[in-house]
Computed example of a mutant assay.
Amino acid sequence: MTPTIVITLVVLWQLVLVGYTWTLAGNAADEAVRAGTAAEGDMQARCAEAGLKDLSGAWQGGADVRCGAGGGFVTADVRIEVPILFPGTVSFPFTVKGHAGAVEEATH
């Protein structure tokens, strides 16, 4: 019975990590696009910096933030690798994606 309980707990913990990574990706995309809408100068750099700012080191290593602008609209796409059991160690070969978009703010 003990192995069944341990395996169940490991699977549940891994599902929690997948869900938490998904939440982090969505939040990072929101933060990145928010910074990108008001950025003057190098929008991509400010957008990427804002997207990575709130991620802990365990998730930053496997994160990729890309921003784009066109037609008065800014988008941010974030990809974060899902860790296996312990954040900061080995990751699964797939990523969780977050996407956000917003209208550019007029700067005067």
Rank of each mutant, 00 (worst) to 15 (best):
E40I: 09
C47F: 01
Y20R: 11
H108C: 09
T37Y: 03
G70C: 01
I7K: 04
A38K: 05
L17G: 04
D30F: 01
E31V: 02
E104L: 14
L85A: 12
A63I: 02
T107V: 13
W22N: 12
S56A: 10
H108L: 10
V18D: 06
I84E: 04
G51A: 03
A106G: 10
G101F: 03
D42R: 03
L24I: 03
G62N: 07
A29R: 00
V103W: 05
P83D: 03
I5E: 09
L15W: 04
K97A: 15
H108I: 11
K53S: 10
F86C: 10
I84W: 05
K53C: 03
A69G: 10
V74G: 04
S91F: 06
L85S: 07
P87D: 05
L55F: 05
M43E: 03
T107M: 09
D30K: 00
V11F: 02
V10N: 11
C67H: 01
A102R: 15
V78G: 07
D64V: 15
G72A: 14
A48H: 00
L15C: 08
E40K: 07
G57N: 09
G57E: 08
H99E: 13
Q44K: 12
L9Y: 11
G51N: 03
A48P: 05
V74Q: 06
G71V: 09
I84F: 11
I80S: 06
V18T: 10
Q14Y: 10
T107N: 08
V96H: 04
T95D: 09
A50M: 08
V18F: 13
E40R: 12
K97H: 15
G61V: 13
Q14T: 13
T8N: 11
G26H: 05
I80Q: 06
F94K: 12
E105S: 04
L85C: 10
P83W: 05
I80E: 04
C67Y: 00
A28I: 06
G71M: 07
A63Y: 00
W59V: 13
G51W: 01
V33M: 02
Q14W: 12
G71K: 10
L85E: 06
S91H: 08
